[in-house]
Simulated scan of single mutants.
Amino acid sequence: MMTSIESTAFGRLEAEGRLLKPAHKGTTHHAGRFGFRGEIAITLEPLLTLEAVFAAAQDGDAALSFVAGSLSSFKQLPALAESLGASVKPDGKYYIYVGDLDRASRYQISFGGVSLYVLPIDDTSVYNELIELFYLDKLKMKKYDTAEKIDTIVDAGLKYDTSYEVISYEDGLKRL
């Protein structure tokens, strides 16, 4: 049976008009997985987006299992957490690249019991950052279709188990 967007955590985001510029919005090669590559609107007025998003959810799960994307500013994290709300869960994996973080900064910051990996982004893409972070084979990745790229990144991201310095959002603001 085909997984529909309505049966995943993407259903609410779609209904609210938050899934923008999709390069992929549909099932992947993994049974029951729905994937998205594009932008997620954090606020609609004014428009603020999580850019270069890779995200996935399982059929019947009310929360996204994986999200990766970039924000231009650390100060946008609370708005992101608020907009995702119940669409994220404590055991999900969320990688947020932030443009104004110092290059050596790597943090875990919790919002409402949900931990985000907050990482700096160089003048590269989220895609390239994820390939490097998860030690994926860039040459193999080039041969994959978008759904297979999403699956490979999500599978690696869900297995990724490292700890970064755990700080509060307020502590992060002081370090900018």
Rank of each mutant, 00 (worst) to 15 (best):
residue 129 E to I: 06
residue 13 L to K: 04
residue 82 E to P: 05
residue 113 G to Y: 00
residue 38 G to F: 12
residue 9 A to G: 13
residue 60 G to H: 04
residue 27 T to M: 15
residue 51 E to D: 14
residue 50 L to Q: 14
residue 165 E to Q: 05
residue 166 V to W: 00
residue 33 R to K: 13
residue 112 G to C: 06
residue 59 D to S: 12
residue 168 S to R: 02
residue 153 I to F: 07
residue 60 G to R: 05
residue 48 L to F: 01
residue 48 L to C: 00
residue 113 G to H: 00
residue 102 D to P: 04
residue 144 Y to L: 10
residue 159 K to M: 08
residue 39 E to P: 13
residue 124 T to H: 13
residue 5 I to F: 09
residue 166 V to N: 04
residue 20 L to V: 04
residue 164 Y to P: 06
residue 85 G to V: 00
residue 88 V to W: 04
residue 39 E to D: 15
residue 102 D to V: 00
residue 36 F to W: 06
residue 46 P to C: 11
residue 131 I to G: 05
residue 154 V to I: 08
residue 161 D to P: 02
residue 171 D to T: 11
residue 85 G to L: 01
residue 149 K to L: 03
residue 83 S to M: 02
residue 114 V to S: 03
residue 123 D to G: 15
residue 4 S to N: 14
residue 96 I to Y: 04
residue 83 S to F: 01
residue 102 D to C: 01
residue 14 E to M: 12
residue 75 K to F: 11
residue 14 E to Y: 08
residue 101 L to M: 11
residue 31 A to G: 09
residue 12 R to H: 10
residue 107 Y to G: 11
residue 84 L to Q: 05
residue 22 P to E: 14
residue 116 L to D: 15
residue 53 V to R: 06
residue 106 R to H: 07
residue 151 D to K: 01
residue 140 K to V: 05
residue 6 E to R: 14
